[in-house]
Design a protein around this nucleic acid. Structure first.
Lengths: 298, 298
DNA sequence: GGGTTCGATACCGCGTTGTCATCAGCGTGC
DNA sequence: GCACGCTGATGACAACGCGGTATCGAACCC
């Protein structure tokens, strides 16, 4: 059952006249007659009653007309549907991010993407770097928002944001009374570090900064993720070095302070498989660039 | 969107391997690659991610796979559906019959047709000859069961049954006491005739029989149809000459008697348009012939 | 009964599809 | 590390199918 023949048949069935149907289809009448005859012999069913000058549909023809219209309309809808997906205006995109990206620039990027592509279903999930790397390589997610970035032959990485580190303290800490805080002066404090595993991780990045300042924190508490770490800080377990952007979100029990000393900062990046060509991904990258450019101007 | 390409795409999408899909489709691999590429360029959408040795569907491809399977299955079902209609095993058939055919052979024909073609919807309706003729010519019905037959250039007629006439009387009639009833002896009775219009009709058939016997009924009551006429007989309005088969159905207040005298009987026929080629019609005619043959043997 | 209308048939040219041969890219294994 | 194998893409060519024009045959109409 060729699709062209189905279209031809619908035209004939609607016009009930081969000549008019042919001109509607922009072909000559003879090939139309032949295609209908071919369709009938393919199906083994008479579709059109030609016994009079005014042709009529048989019962089988009437049913086929209904069904054919339905099928043709479904195909048309399908075409539009997949075209939208192919252009990235519909479908879904799976994004994972580190906990410390929950505040700051990522929400703006997400918001901008949602408003530009409202029909794309965004599946967001929090993961640490190691989980992100596994997931993006396994194609379980499309984009990994990692700190500082994921290194792998299969992956590509684009910088999203470079930001300084900042000190996170309990809001009851006596350190808050000082005007300036030198990092080296904190060697006796308990440092809350994350994530605990796998190593090396952001924790080691902080430790290397301390080493640069000439000390290794005497007391270290390792948390599994940023959320846990900041909770520990809020209840007075210790202090932490965190990306500056997280200070945008007020959190009960936590105060933030700039510090003096080595501050290489920390980077946030967008990571994805090199071979991932889905348009949603490129659209997301473009939106992210736009947001960053606008943010930088302000 | 060619249907062949859709079938090819489903094969590739299911196998995720051009070579295997090609052999499943019993074609070589190159044309398959080309057809899929053609489909993608027709739709303007990438359907298959060929970036690795193991190919994968894109999001658009996954959606198309679902939709294509659905459409192909619908077309398959449609094919079976209209084939059954084309063979007369499904669909509908519209039959009209004169009221006096309600008893006797017609119910047996209907029963036999129903059991042979249970999926054919039979639309039955009672009409007098004139209504039947109009309806069958206008194609509002397919078969007219008329008495004796419908004469028209457009129509064909096949005899169904030839049966004698019989006298219908009120069961309180004094005529019942006689052993034999000569028709000519009834000239003073009131004759219930039908249908009233249009004329000539079965009423005139009865009157011509009376004339043959040498009289014209003094008193005539005209009813519109057989059902009304027999009701009038049952309440003692008069007597009627009716087809013998209706005596098979017992009716309160009515008695039947054979009579002596001219009895050309009455014929029942199947009538249909010459140009009606629907298989249901031929099946019905065949069933009717079978039933009549069996009935005659008994 | 001649003309008109309409679908069917005959025949021809071209586009599309299939075949075979071969290429190019990627992975794998010795 | 290089060669081989696997897989899909590309090229050349033959065959089939589709559409075009011309024409026929039947039904309808005045």
């Amino acid at each position: 059952m060729d699709l062209r023949r189905l279209v031809y048949f619908v035209a004939v069935a609607e016009e009930l006249h081969f000549g008019r149907a042919a001109s509607r289809l922009a072909i000559a009448q003879p090939p139309l007659s032949r295609q209908i005859a071919q369709l009938e012999s393919d199906l083994g069913v008479m579709l059109i009653d030609r016994s009079r000058s005014q042709i009529r549909l048989t019962q089988a023809g009437s049913v086929l007309l209904e069904r054919a219209r339905d099928v043709l309309e479904r195909l048309d809808r399908t075409h539009r549907e997949i075209k939208r997906i192919g252009e990235g205006f519909s479908g879904h995109l799976r994004v994972a991010f580190v906990g410390s990206a929950t505040y700051g620039v990522l929400p703006n990027v997400i918001k901008a993407f949602r408003s530009a592509y409202p029909d794309v279903e965004l599946a967001l999930s929090a993961m640490n770097n190691a989980e992100q790397k596994r997931a993006v390589i396994q194609r379980e997610i499309d984009i990994a928002v990692a700190r500082p970035s994921l290194e792998d032959e299969e992956l590509k990485s684009e910088p999203l944001l470079q930001e300084p580190l900042i000190l996170a303290l309990s809001d009851t800490s006596p350190l808050l009374e000082r005007q300036v805080t030198r990092l080296a002066a904190l060697k006796a404090e308990t440092f809350v570090l994350y994530p605990r595993k796998p190593r090396p991780s952001f924790a080691d990045h902080i430790l290397s900064i301390c080493l640069e300042e000439g000390f290794i924190p005497k007391s270290q508490v390792l948390a599994q993720d940023y959320q846990t770490a900041i909770s520990l800080v809020s209840v007075g377990v210790g202090i932490a070095l965190v990306p500056k952007s997280v200070s945008q979100a007020e959190r009960p029990g936590v105060a933030y302070r700039a510090y003096e000393g080595h501050n290489p900062g920390t980077a946030l990046s967008l990571n994805y498989r090199r071979d991932n060509r889905m348009p949603h991904l490129f659209n997301f990258l473009k939106i992210a660039q736009d947001v960053m450019r606008r943010q930088r101007k302000q």
